[in-house]
Amino acid sequence: MGLDTQRPTVDEIGEMTPEEMLGWAHAAHGSRAAIITSFQNTGVVMIDMAYRLGHRLRVLTIDTLRLHQETYDLMGRIEERYGIAIERFRPDPDRVARMVQQHGEYLFFDSPEKQAYCCQIRKVEPNQRALETVDVWFTGLRRDQSEHRRNAPRATQIKAGQRPILKLSPLADWTEEDLTEYIRERDVPYNPLIDMGYASIGCVICTTPTLPGEDKRAGRWRWFNQLRNEHQKECGIHINGSGI
């Protein structure tokens, strides 16, 4: 970047409104800034905000090949609505084949360790590849999503491999109600699973809806709920020094 003198500090970025953050990143980093989303409500709102203001940021997603049909359908609607080509990062087919051959397609039932391994192959590794293509990573983390995410900052510098990148969560302090209102007002395409009680949406089978009063990520890997209370309920994209 040749405009270092004008470059805001991480703290200053963290003070920007979501619209300012998206606009600044697009202007300053162009195609090295991207929204990486699983198309939950924060993701679709970020896309709408950016595209409404003409910030045609890249939109990246991790297609684990095991997403809900509803999510695949939504991707099509978003591409049509905003005229974008969503970039899909998929797991390495050889590694998936090896994993399935060794442990079976549904290894995630067996133990938290195998579940984490499946997430590693299908999600974390493609996410790392996606991150290699960006300097600014927009993500949909929200503080009300779980206890684990309560202190998630709006802007933070993290390491992707050896390289520092900026991880931005412009809607970190929004609530589910804020998002729903935004979506309704502007008729933003969103995932119908949310209306069905899915508070967190990942792979099919591994995500189920949550009951009233449950943690928003309780529907993930539900079969471990009784097994081990401290099970983190994170796939790994947002832990291990990635700056939550």
Binding site: H68, Q69, L193, M196, G197, V204, I205, T208, P209, L211
Partner: peptide, 23 residues
């Protein structure tokens, strides 16, 4: 992966939503 045709049916039956997921 349905554990004998269970899948998310039980959980979704408990939701207010008017519809079920594709699964």
């Amino acid at each position: 992966a349905s554990r004998g045709l269970r899948g998310p049916i039980g959980i979704e039956l408990g939701q207010d939503a008017p519809a079920f997921s594709e699964e």
